[in-house]
Every structure is written in structure tokens, then in C-alpha cells.
């Protein structure tokens, strides 16, 4: 296993503070992701690679859904993993690793959205633009049924278009709950909001999205499985 070259002046990574394994049956088992994170924090680059692979889909999905642009999302996902690499030694394991990753991703997304907004970038995406629909897919998906792939691309483009009309704060809740399937409890940890705020804000976001998507999800619109 190759080791990470030093990033500090003295050539050493800071000592990791993640929890260690325990043989005590009364101690809950260590989250396997945490074990990988601990190894990565100790300088095991193979473990860090595994962590990136493990969270690649989740981090990228949140970034793409939040930013609405594939290139920006790819760049942001890389930025998140670099930030994670530097922050791992300080990660204490007080929350789930996934929650921590989602929190970093969410923070970076909101930051990037502000940055892009100041520069008026990405404000006029059109779901009927084939370029937008094609951003959802990936050449790696070509082995799938082409018809199903097309349906999914259209579906994703519709959803993406609706999401972009929500405020970033509403969007993050819909992404975390309805697309990433996080529990309310996890969302509270990711966002730092109170449970009541999560519920009411999520309700407003969903109601808003229902109105936006009504032409396609309404009784005469898109067929949606129950």
C-alpha cells in the first residue's frame, strides 16, 4: 500500500483522532467507513482512494443536483475530496462519516452557488436543450437499455429544471431527502437546522416543486408509478 507523501513541513500528517476498534462486545461496532477513514487519516493512500470511490456517487450527485452543471459538479466534487483529505485528521467521528461528507459537500455547494451567482453563470438552463439533458448521463451508461436511458435522462432533466427554480436552501433539503434518501435525523446533522425547520422548509420546497412540475406530473402529465 503506498503512503501519502507529507503535506506538512516536517513530512508527517497530524495524528488522527478517529475512534479505534474495540473488542468489547458492549461497544457498538465501528462503522466500516470510519475504519477506512481512520486508515486514510493515518496516511494510507489506498484507504483514501477507497473512500473517494465509496463516496464519489453521493458527493457528485449532490453537487450536480445543487449546481445543475456537470463540469462545475465534477470540479466541486474534486474540491470536496481534497478538503476531506486535509480535514480527515481532525474528524473525530462524532457524527457519521457520510453525514460529515454531505455537510462539507453542502457547504461547498452553497458557497459555489453564491460565487456563480455573483458572476451570473448558469442561470438560464433549459430542459429542452439536449446539452442539459445529456449532462445527466455519462458515456459509461451506454451498456444500459437505450430507451430506459433516454427516459431517465428526460426525467432527470425535468427534475433538474425544477430543482433549479427552488432556492438553494430549499433545494438542498429536497436533494438530501428525496434524492439521496437521508433520514430527517441525518438531515438535521448535515444542515444544523432544527427538526421542525427541516420539516416545514421541506414541505414548502416540495409544495413549490409540485407546482413547478404540475404540467408533467399532473393527471394528464407524465405517468408516474405509485
Amino acid at each position: 500500500m503506498d503512503k501519502i507523501p507529507a503535506t506538512t513541513e516536517d513530512g508527517k500528517r497530524p495524528v488522527a483522532t478517529l475512534p479505534r476498534r474495540s473488542d468489547d462486545p458492549d461497544v457498538p461496532p465501528v462503522d466500516p467507513d470510519l475504519a477506512i477513514a481512520r486508515r486514510a487519516a493515518d496516511g494510507d493512500m489506498g484507504a483514501f482512494d477507497a473512500l473517494v470511490s465509496l463516496y464519489n456517487a453521493r458527493v457528485f450527485a449532490v453537487a450536480f443536483r445543487m449546481l445543475g452543471d456537470r463540469a462545475e459538479a465534477e470540479d466541486l466534487a474534486q474540491e470536496v475530496f481534497v478538503a476531506v483529505y486535509h480535514a480527515l485528521p481532525e474528524f473525530r467521528g462524532d457524527s457519521k462519516l457520510s453525514t460529515w461528507m454531505y455537510r462539507i459537500t453542502k457547504n461547498r455547494c452553497l458557497n459555489r452557488i453564491k460565487f456563480l451567482k455573483r458572476r451570473h453563470i448558469g442561470e438560464h438552463q433549459d430542459i429542452h436543450d439536449p446539452a442539459v439533458a445529456s449532462q445527466v448521463g455519462d458515456p459509461g451508461q451506454q451498456k444500459r437499455d437505450p430507451r430506459r436511458l433516454l427516459e431517465q435522462q428526460e426525467l432527470s432533466a425535468l427534475v433538474q429544471s425544477g430543482l433549479q427554480k427552488l432556492s438553494p436552501e430549499q433545494r438542498e433539503l429536497v436533494v438530501l431527502r428525496d434524492l439521496e434518501d437521508l433520514s430527517y435525523e441525518e438531515i438535521v446533522h448535515v444542515t444544523g437546522l432544527q427538526l421542525g425547520t427541516v420539516k416545514s422548509r421541506l414541505h414548502r420546497a416540495r409544495a413549490h416543486l409540485a407546482k413547478i412540475l404540475a404540467p408533467v406530473t399532473g393527471p394528464a402529465g407524465l405517468e408516474v408509478a405509485p
Binding site: N56, F60, Q78, S156, V159, L179, A210, T217, V224, A225
Partner: peptide, 25 residues
């Protein structure tokens, strides 16, 4: 309306991430 919208969201696949993310990072 809410049920159809939430169902639509749940049916949506995750966008495919770059396959070379490890190398990029």
C-alpha cells in the same frame, strides 16, 4: 400532487459520476 412529485423524485437515478474521480483527486 405531492405524492406524484415525490414519486418522480424517487424514480430519478443519480447522475453518473466521473469514473476517474480517484485519479482526478
Amino acid at each position: 400532487a405531492l405524492r406524484r412529485t415525490m414519486s418522480l423524485l424517487h424514480q430519478t437515478d443519480r447522475p453518473a459520476p466521473p469514473v476517474d474521480m480517484v485519479a482526478r483527486v
